[in-house]
């Protein structure tokens, strides 16, 4: 692990302890990484003993711009959230990365944890985040020829209007 990674991890931890931010993430350990430092931060955490990547998902903050972020973190439309677990330390940590709308790309964690394969495909399928170096970035839940990314906030629920009309009486 390089020294710069440790330094960064510690500063990010400091940012997390600001009271305002802490209230928004009750009792949980959250780190904010930039797109550039994302791989290094996660790699550093893996070396620190976070041996399981339990979850990876994406959030579209299109209609909720005023969320609480520590100083120095520039809000973008998308956010990729990675939940790590350390069995030896009995601790969890969450890494949040801001991903801009104009270029929704992020490096893949496949080389660190092959278990991210399906999770990143899900984030790509439903939210349209492109993970570079992912071995097989295809849709996973929707049909291959589906248009759009359903979990984006500008994608409608796709509600079909329900018709109410008198049923022909059986008696």
């Amino acid at each position: 692990m390089s020294d710069s990674t440790v330094e960064q991890t510690e500063t990010e931890t400091a940012a997390e302890t600001e009271p305002e931010t802490a209230a928004a993430t009750p009792g949980q350990h959250v780190l904010h990484a930039t797109r550039e430092s994302y791989l290094d931060v996660v790699k550093g955490l893996q070396d620190e003993g976070y041996d399981m990547l339990v979850d990876l998902c994406a959030v579209d903050y299109l209609s909720h711009p005023g969320r609480v972020l520590p100083n120095g973190v520039e809000p973008e439309r998308f956010e990729v959230v990675v939940n790590l677990l350390s069995r030896p330390l009995r601790k969890r940590v969450r890494v949040r990365v801001q991903v801009p709308d104009a270029d929704p790309t992020l490096p893949s964690l496949f080389d660190l944890w092959p278990g991210t394969e399906a999770m990143e495909r899900e984030a790509f399928d439903l939210m349209g985040i492109v993970f570079t170096d992912h071995p097989d970035l295809t849709r996973i839940l929707m049909p291959e020829d589906w248009e759009g990314h359903p979990l984006r906030k500008d994608y409608g629920v796709g509600r079909v209007p329900v018709q109410f009309k008198a049923a022909p009486s059986t008696r």
């Binding site: 929707m142 359903p150 994608y155 629920v157 796709g158 079909v160 329900v162």
Partner: peptide
Amino acid sequence: SGGMFNNYALVQ
């Protein structure tokens, strides 16, 4: 009828 899931993913 699609039930409680009236959305993009399900055939109604």
